[in-house]
Amino acid sequence: MIINNVKLILENEVVDGSIDINDGVITRYADSHSRLPGALDGEGGWLLPGLIELHTDNLDKFFTPRPKVDWPAHSAMSSHDALMVASGITTVLDAVALGDVRDGGDRLENLEKMINAVEHSQRRGVNRAEHRLHLRCELPHHTTLPLFEQLMHREPVTLVSLMDHSPGQRQFANREKYREYYQGKYQLNDHDMACYEEEQLALAERWSQPNREAIAAHCRARNIALASHDDATAEHVLESHQLGSVIAEFPTTFDAAQASRQHGMSVLMGAPNIVRGGSHSGNVAAHSLAQAGLLDILSSDYYPASLLDAAFRVALDEGNAFTLPQAIHLVTRNPARALNLNDRGVISEGKRADLVLAHWHGEHVHIGNVWRQGKQVF
């Protein structure tokens, strides 16, 4: 297959040209147009590597589309997969939560169903994107470590993050923000919310630190990539580094992001944070980190379509020094490197032909076609 008449977003430059694909691999690219009659006309669009998503809980929405609605696994997985490729995502780490912040929540009930759906659909070859697993370990819970020890052997497990959403620290250093979020999420009255808050503080005191240390040790032993989550202070970051974290997910302060970079961790921030212009939790804005040169990876988190949109917004922001190739690295090359997925993430000879063709319409970029290993999936 030849894709012609495209603006190729390479590692360090953008060139007008064409690309040749054979047996799912990029065999050649050129800064000239092909004259062969069978070439696909890209109509001058951007051709970039397939997007790599490290942290999305989008799968939850399809398994439980409404409260108390339990959706069939095959349909849920298929719909989620379709949305991924429609967003330009060709490699996705589906994030599943271990140790729900509220016992009996839908995430805990759906855990095994979601993991089986990812594993079985990937094994059968029915997915359009490549799906792997990201185990989000909510540390202040007695179920977290036993669940992790059951699941860490599963083949798709690629990334583990250590999370603590208890009140008064990290994402919820502002206790009012904590109450606002969880009172709305669980429809709790003031009395029930106060009881819930005290319960979470007690759980954190009992379980967070032993779970953090035990899970990190398992990851080091099994060579599973480890991510910190919502680090807020230099002390948090130092601990994450000592535990072996390679990715700093959503640092909540400028100082934590800077310390993460100094310790060699890739700083990951939310693409919705870029699109919306700030954090919904009131923490450091991703565009501020981009302007300071402290942004390495973007994740769509809860909104898949934000990923490519955010990358282009970073490229267009005159307040930072990102070129278009560097901005595209945030959603392609950099996440691939963080996980040692060395066969993808760049347009280069011998790499996987995971590709996205996009066009600029008005003020927005629109995805026209997506290929995974040379096969058109959107």
Score class of each variant (00 low, 15 high):
residue 1 M to K: 07
residue 8 L to I: 12
residue 17 G to Y: 03
residue 19 I to M: 13
residue 39 A to C: 14
residue 40 L to T: 12
residue 50 G to I: 09
residue 50 G to L: 10
residue 55 H to F: 07
residue 59 L to N: 07
residue 65 P to T: 11
residue 67 P to I: 06
residue 71 W to L: 10
residue 73 A to R: 13
residue 77 M to K: 03
residue 77 M to A: 13
residue 77 M to C: 13
residue 80 H to N: 10
residue 80 H to K: 00
residue 83 L to K: 10
residue 85 V to G: 05
residue 87 S to G: 06
residue 96 V to T: 10
residue 105 G to F: 03
residue 107 R to E: 14
residue 112 E to K: 14
residue 115 I to N: 02
residue 118 V to T: 05
residue 123 R to G: 00
residue 123 R to N: 07
residue 127 N to R: 12
residue 128 R to W: 07
residue 131 H to N: 11
residue 131 H to G: 01
residue 134 H to C: 00
residue 135 L to H: 08
residue 145 L to V: 11
residue 155 E to V: 00
residue 157 V to A: 02
residue 161 S to C: 04
residue 162 L to N: 02
residue 165 H to A: 08
residue 175 R to S: 09
residue 176 E to K: 08
residue 181 Y to F: 14
residue 183 Q to I: 01
residue 185 K to Y: 05
residue 187 Q to I: 05
residue 188 L to G: 03
residue 190 D to Y: 07
residue 194 A to M: 10
residue 197 E to K: 03
residue 197 E to Q: 12
residue 199 E to A: 08
residue 199 E to M: 10
residue 200 Q to L: 12
residue 200 Q to N: 14
residue 200 Q to M: 15
residue 203 L to T: 00
residue 207 W to F: 15
residue 207 W to K: 05
residue 212 R to D: 01
residue 217 A to H: 10
residue 218 H to F: 10
residue 223 N to E: 13
residue 224 I to Y: 04
residue 224 I to W: 06
residue 227 A to R: 06
residue 230 D to T: 05
residue 236 H to F: 09
residue 239 E to F: 05
residue 244 G to V: 06
residue 245 S to M: 09
residue 249 E to Y: 07
residue 249 E to T: 04
residue 258 Q to Y: 13
residue 270 G to Q: 06
residue 271 A to D: 04
residue 276 R to L: 14
residue 280 H to I: 11
residue 287 H to F: 00
residue 289 L to V: 04
residue 293 G to L: 13
residue 294 L to A: 11
residue 299 S to R: 08
residue 300 S to Y: 04
residue 300 S to H: 09
residue 303 Y to F: 10
residue 304 P to C: 12
residue 304 P to E: 10
residue 307 L to G: 01
residue 308 L to V: 11
residue 311 A to G: 07
residue 312 F to L: 13
residue 318 E to S: 13
residue 323 T to C: 05
residue 324 L to F: 01
residue 324 L to Q: 08
residue 325 P to T: 09
residue 327 A to R: 09
residue 332 T to N: 08
residue 334 N to S: 14
residue 338 A to W: 01
residue 344 R to V: 05
residue 346 V to Y: 02
residue 348 S to F: 00
residue 348 S to I: 01
residue 349 E to Q: 15
residue 351 K to V: 03
residue 355 L to N: 05
residue 362 G to T: 06
residue 364 H to D: 14
residue 365 V to S: 05
residue 365 V to A: 14
residue 370 V to E: 01
residue 372 R to H: 12
